[in-house]
Write a protein that binds this DNA or RNA. Structure first.
Lengths: 150, 150
DNA sequence: TATTGTTATACTCTATAACTATA
DNA sequence: TATAGTTATAGAGTATAACAATA
């Protein structure tokens, strides 16, 4: 029943395994509230960068544009976001969060906070900060959209 | 084009993102050599714990038994593993790596080693060790099969 | 009847390709 | 002609269910 040492000795393997585990937990938790991972990240994005166009949102979150359509549909149906046709280019839709959407975001945020607390529970506060710093260093190096600069 | 700070500030999010990225790279690299992630982990497992039954292998690697059948079929077709019917219980098949399988494992190992070097390149040697220790601490706490003990 | 390995089927997620309306 | 958003379709990957051999 024990995993090969060869795998456990790899940071890459542990990263994948812990990441998949956390993702699965988050998915399950969000699904109970009838949301997906994307609902959360779209709301979080629009909360910080309002009035993005659909193409911008999709590119930022590495989503397919056709995938985003369905996500936005379901958020719009619940009154959490609103689409606005751009007056300067009528092909474009800009998207914004509604007040209800912001309230929902707070709830989802709390759900994920709890999950993350569970995940990091084995570490001391100092170790949590060290881990985040190391992960951020890797993410910024490999993935510019995680970076502090634009 | 920048990801929400709310997400980047989360170790859980970074873990998922880095994990998915590394997994995708490993999949692409292995696919070029006509292997999958599972081929590698099955070979690695059998190299350390030979003569496991199919059920044991599937449970250890969290694979569906029916999924494992196809993986073993393709490894057997290439002469990298061999199935043996268990004499004490003729329902069971034990599985072992062949010499060719061991040679192939070395090659796959080198491929993943390189990928991992790329992943961890931004960190110093000391930071790499710190990161692995932190990840291992989390993995062992949440996932006994990663642990040192059985 | 229960279990091992196997085969066949269904489902979910994502990726690709067409379609419309605007530019 | 090219682009933004939308719709429809196809594919990979996985999960579920049924099946044959053996216990």
């Amino acid at each position: 029943m024990r995993l090969p040492r060869e795998l456990v000795a790899r940071s890459g393997f542990l990263l994948v395994r812990l990441g998949l585990r956390f993702k699965a937990q988050a998915l399950a938790e969000l699904a109970q509230a009838d949301f997906s991972q994307y609902h959360y990240s779209v709301l979080a994005l629009l909360d910080e960068q309002p009035q993005e166009t659909q193409a911008q949102i999709a590119d930022t979150l590495c989503l397919d544009r056709s995938q985003l359509v369905r996500i936005l549909d379901s958020l719009e149906d619940r009154g959490l976001i609103a689409r606005h046709r751009d007056r300067t280019d009528r092909r474009r839709h800009t998207v914004s969060v509604t007040a209800a959407g912001r309230r929902q975001l707070h709830q989802l945020r709390r759900m994920i906070d709890e999950l993350e607390d569970d995940l990091l529970a084995p570490l001391t506060g100092a170790d949590r900060r060290r881990l985040h710093a190391l992960l951020l260093q890797l993410a910024e190096a490999h993935d510019p959209s995680c970076g502090a600069s634009d």
